[in-house]
Structures are given as C-alpha cells and as structure tokens.
Write a protein that binds this DNA or RNA. Structure first.
Length: 358
DNA sequence: AAGACGGGGTA
DNA sequence: TACCCAGTCTT
C-alpha cells in the first residue's frame, strides 16, 4: 500500500510523456475546452459531477445562454436556475452553484477565486472540482481525483483497496499529486480524464491502444477490470405512491418541495406513499385522503397511468388519477395548464404534466 | 464512515 | 438488471 512520495515509480517520467503525447493527438473536442472563461469552466465542472459528458453538453450550452456571466447567475431567481437545470438531476448542484455565484459577487468582486482554500469554501466545490478549476481555468498546479482518474490510477498501479475507503482514497490522491509534471497540470489532468473516458473504460478497456499499456500493473497482471475493486450495493427499494392531478377551471394543483433534500425546490403534483395493503379501493381512499389532508372535496376519475422513475437509491411508481375539485381552498398553487412548463419539475412530474397538456 | 442525492447511457 | 458517470454534502 505504501508508495513513498519522492522516490516514486521509476517510470514516472515516461508515463507523463506518453500520456501527454497521446492526449495532444487524441483529445476530445468539448465545448468547455474552447473557452478560458473561469465561470464557464466552473459551470461545466459542476454539471460534470456524476454526469456524463454527452448528457452535459446541451445543458452547458443552454445554461450559459441563459446566464452568460456570473453576475447574470447571481441576480437570477433560484427558481429560474432550477428551471434551466431541469432534467439534469442532483439539483443541489444548481442551488449551490447559484449560492456560490452570490458569494463570489459579494466577497470576491465577481471574480472566481484562484486558490484551493477559497474555492473549497464555495458550496458545491470539493477537492476534485477545485483541482479541475485551478488547473483548467487558472493554469495552477493542482490535482484531481474524479471517476476517470480514480479508475486509471487504480489500474496503473494495481490499487486493490476498496475505493470507497478513506485510506484508498488518500493513496489515490497521493498518486494523482505526485504524478503531475510540474507546469503541466492542465493538460495532464485532462489527459487523465480522456484516457479514462476513451481507453481505460470501466468495462472492456482498450489496453492495446493505451499509451500506458507497458507501465500498467493492472493490465500486465491479467485483468485490469479488477481495479478499482467493486463495492457491493444493496438493491433499491420500490416505492408505490398515488398522485392526484386535481383540476378546476383549467387549472391544476401543484406543491413545491422543501428547499433542501430530494428534488429540493422543485414543483410536483401532490403524491404520497401507499403501503401494499392499501391498494384496494384506491379511488375511494384517495377521495377521503384528499378531503382529510387538503380539505378539498373532489371527484376522483379513472387512473390515467403508472409513471415510473428510478433514482440512485430507490425506485418509485406513481399511480396518477385526474380529479375534479368542487372548491379552491388548499395549500399549494393552482396553475393554468398552459403555464405548467414554467415551473421546475422532476422528470417524472414533467412527464405527468406533459401527459395532461395533450 | 456511511448515506443521500437524479437521470441517463450502456451492456 | 446492474453499473457508473469530470463528486459533494450531511449526518
């Protein structure tokens, strides 16, 4: 496990050169590589957290069109930011990005800070994102440890520890730091990412085409895919819920989720979990529950369908019923159907909204 | 140290 | 289905 920092790998120099040469010739053409604007690069790095490049590209372009500068972002309403973020997931990223833009405007004269300490003080920026911003936007000496770097380095040095354990993380960070050629953080970190995305892929790595093939302990030891080691995941629970779409005079009732936590700040149709035994006489139960919980007298129509969504730690099926209300009083917001598109909503509720708009 | 946090692409 | 993505934050 111990790899001393100074007298590291004898191949260090060759690894650096090979990787940089490979990168120069094979780098991906990505929108955020065409700019030197720290704000744009920052936006890209936040979007790329746990999200694949191809998913991010259209969001990145649209976001910068909507909020061209950090000042535009800082002055915008959170709801507008969430709307532009809609569908990208991990909405706390949007909330943190927005919050951080206000901090930068107020405490850093609108200039994104260029030190590790200051960057780490901004919400949504952890060590790896800070390293990416420092090296990509400011040409500073910094290291990264994203999913790509983690996989590449684990294989290159056959790091067999559980990648989720702190000790393994620390070791990988050490490797990432010590491998960077002085003055070349920017291309080197990008090269690490591109190698991980294009050659050293999670499944079926293209070792024969890898510039680091002959230095790679993972590859020469037989099966590079053993690294990083897999972690066992519990299978996700399945939640069933009912979801009344309550109509009155061309409007429907929406609730806004609390600002933090799951899908924080997004709007949705009322919905609540049902247990297995409650599945009988669903429409009658629904009518009574709406009366009891919302103080609303409604007529419950037939179900308009089951809507499913899989999240990282559970999956949910919403049984959606249209209802007709006989009165207005309620918490929540009555929204004309043609205006539903203005509200930030999660994927599953957006699909419901679209299904009743047609 | 462990769990929460979205949604999609891929095999 | 299962994996995993240019990770961070909370508990």
């Amino acid at each position: 496990m111990a790899i001393a920092k100074g007298l590291l790998f004898p191949n260090k120099k060759q690894i650096q050169i090979k990787l940089l040469q490979w990168f120069k010739k094979n780098k991906r053409d990505l929108p955020w590589r065409k700019t030197d604007d720290p704000y744009s690069i920052w936006v890209s790095e936040i979007m790329l957290q746990q999200t694949q490049v191809t998913t991010v590209i259209p969001y990145y372009k649209n976001f910068l069109k909507s909020f061209p500068t950090i000042r535009h972002l800082a002055k915008a309403n959170l709801s507008k930011v969430l709307k532009v973020w809609e569908g990208l997931g991990y909405y706390s990223r949007a909330r943190n990005l927005h919050g951080a833009s206000k901090i930068v405007l107020k405490h850093f004269h609108g200039k994104i800070p260029a030190t590790l300490k200051d960057l780490l003080g901004l919400p949504g920026i952890g060590r790896s994102t800070a390293g990416a911003i420092l090296s990509f936007a400011f040409q500073k000496e910094a290291s990264i440890l994203d999913g790509n770097a983690k996989r590449v380095l684990s294989r290159l040095f056959a790091v067999s520890g559980n990648p989720e354990k702190r000790k393994t993380e620390q070791l990988l960070w050490k490797i990432s730091e010590s491998l960077i050629p002085k003055g070349y953080s920017n291309p080197f970190n990008q090269a690490l990412m591109d190698l991980g995305a294009m050659i050293c892929t999670p499944k079926g790595p293209l070792c024969p085409r890898c510039p680091l093939h002959r230095f790679c302990k993972g590859s020469t030891s037989g099966k590079p895919e053993r690294f990083p080691s897999k972690t066992i995941k519990r299978k996700t629970p399945h939640i069933r819920a009912v979801c009344p779409v309550i109509h009155k005079d061309g409007k429907v009732l929406l609730n806004q989720r609390p600002p933090k936590g799951l899908l924080g700040g997004l709007w949705e149709f009322p919905n609540w979990k049902i247990e297995g035994k409650q599945r009988s006489r669903l429409r009658l139960r629904l009518k009574n529950d709406i009366k009891k919980e919302m103080g609303l007298n409604v007529k419950v129509n037939e179900s308009i369908g089951m809507f499913r969504q899989t999240y990282s730690h559970f999956k949910i099926t919403l049984d959606v019923f249209t209802c007709e209300a006989f009165e207005w009083n309620s918490n929540g917001k009555w929204v004309p159907i043609p205006e539903l598109h203005l509200f930030p909503m999660s994927r599953i509720h957006r699909r419901i909204a679209e299904s009743i708009s047609n």
